[in-house]
């Protein structure tokens, strides 16, 4: 009689988990060995008790599980749908507000603000007329029709006085007088 087969090998042999070659040699030993036959009988007995004593889940338990899973998924789906609606509503309100603000800004703009701005000279009061009336020499540029935003300029020179550039704008109430530099005085003829 050869050495007994270990319990671990027999535990695999019982359920056909040994490779074919090993299984054949164990079978040859077990055929002639009562001790190993008893071990196999005990393993089989405990295996039967083990596998046949545990019940499957009942229909009620399965229904509870399914209901919990589907309830959660349906709640999640409803929540995500409500978020989509909420987002869409918020986006619509924001768009309406933006449109209202934009229209309001356009209406508040003054009409002049949309015209091209004239040049930098400051608006000055007309100069004091001289006491003695000297001979006035006026050089006038050819008249042109003043388009909105354009200026018509006239150079006004008096002997011994600083020269002025008189500019008319498209607004008849606004006249710009631009005093030239001191050294640009008109020489007395």
């Amino acid at each position: 009689m050869s050495v007994h087969v270990s319990e671990e090998i027999l535990a695999l042999y019982v359920r056909g988990d040994l490779p074919e070659h090993d299984s054949r040699s164990v079978a040859r030993h077990v055929d002639e060995c009562q001790d190993c036959k008893q071990v196999i009988a005990d393993i089989s007995f405990s295996y039967e008790i083990f596998t046949n004593s545990l019940n499957d889940p009942t229909a009620a338990e399965l229904a509870t599980l399914r209901s919990a899973v589907m309830g959660k998924l349906r709640a999640d789906a409803a929540e995500s749908r409500s978020w989509v609606w909420l987002f869409a509503a918020a986006a619509s309100v924001l768009l309406c507000l933006a449109a209202l603000i934009w229209r309001g800004e356009r209406q508040e703009l003054p009409p002049m603000a949309r015209l091209p701005r004239p040049g930098p000279p400051a608006v000055m009061p007309p100069p004091e007329p001289p006491i003695a009336t000297p001979r006035t020499h006026v050089t006038q540029a050819p008249r042109k029709r003043i388009e909105p935003g354009m200026c018509a300029a006239t150079l006004i020179t008096k002997a011994g006085q600083p020269a002025y550039l008189k500019m008319s704008t498209s607004d008849p109430n606004v006249v710009i007088l631009w005093q030239l530099e001191e050294n640009e005085k008109v020489a007395t003829p």
């Binding site: 319990e7 671990e8 090998i9 535990a11 695999l12 019982v14 359920r15 988990d17 005990d42 393993i43 007995f45 405990s46 295996y47 008790i49 083990f50």
Partner: peptide
């Protein structure tokens, strides 16, 4: 896995017996 199954079956057999 075979080793784990083998050890487990032997433990169960000894416990049940």
């Amino acid at each position: 896995v075979r080793s784990q199954i083998s050890t487990g079956r032997v433990k169960i057999k000894r416990f049940v017996m």
